[in-house]
């Protein structure tokens, strides 16, 4: 655990506020016309998912949490928690679903992910910026519908609904931007 100046906080920094672990979801520097330098933060409580908005002077001292990434296999979700298994030690980790909104759209059973651990607690799951997922439900394109930029909605294997170009078919693999949940391109095998 280390003390850092609030001015060096970045998006994705893990912080301890009032003994609760938070991740920084948004960080913005603000210098009011006639005021000190501040940074405005949106923090996510990693136990409950609740969002906390705070503002620090950039000179304020905050507690950064030392975390480690542990390669772990995703086992299953039970409605309350995601269950993972450490690939080396076979230890099982639980992460409350409440703090990981929409994470299920990017987890595939049996695949390996990085679980962010702080002591005995699992705080977060690190996802790659892009993931390739298979389209499991797609309507056929209507013949003659050749309008440039025409789009439709499809469902992928994890249940996520994505807006895609009209030419995407069931069974194809598409690349999705994890942060925005938007279609990026078709992946040719």
């Amino acid at each position: 655990m280390g003390q850092i100046k609030a001015g060096s906080i970045a998006k994705g920094t893990f912080l301890l506020e009032k003994d609760i672990p938070f991740i920084v979801v948004e960080r913005e520097f603000v210098n009011p016309g006639k005021g000190s330098a501040f940074c405005r933060l949106k923090l996510k409580n990693l136990r409950t998912g609740a969002v906390l908005k705070v503002t620090h002077k950039t000179q304020d001292i905050v507690e950064e949490i030392d975390v480690i990434d542990v390669a772990s296999q995703f086992l299953y979700a039970d409605g309350e928690s995601y269950h993972f298994m450490n690939a080396d030690t076979y230890d099982q980790y639980e992460i409350p679903m409440a703090s990981m909104e929409d994470m299920q759209y990017f987890l595939r059973e049996g695949e390996s992910y990085k679980v962010v651990r702080w002591g005995e607690e699992s705080l977060d799951i690190k996802l790659p910026p892009k993931m390739d997922l298979i389209v499991t439900e797609a309507e056929e394109a209507v013949k003659g519908d050749t309008v440039q930029g025409a789009t439709k909605y499809v469902k992928v294997e994890t249940g996520l609904t994505v807006k895609v170009p009209i030419f995407i078919k069931e069974g194809e693999k598409i690349r999705i931007n994890v942060e925005t949940k938007e279609y990026q391109e078709r992946v040719n095998n």
Binding site: K18, V30, P32, G35, S36, R40, K53, T55, D60
Partner: peptide
């Protein structure tokens, strides 16, 4: 409003922490 502030902060800092967190956005 659960906004942390040091004990010796001046009025300007307290005001801006409230203003920047709750009002300006």
């Amino acid at each position: 409003h659960q906004i942390p502030a040091g004990e010796s902060e001046g009025w300007e800092v307290l005001f801006h922490k409230l203003f920047l967190t709750l009002v300006e956005p």
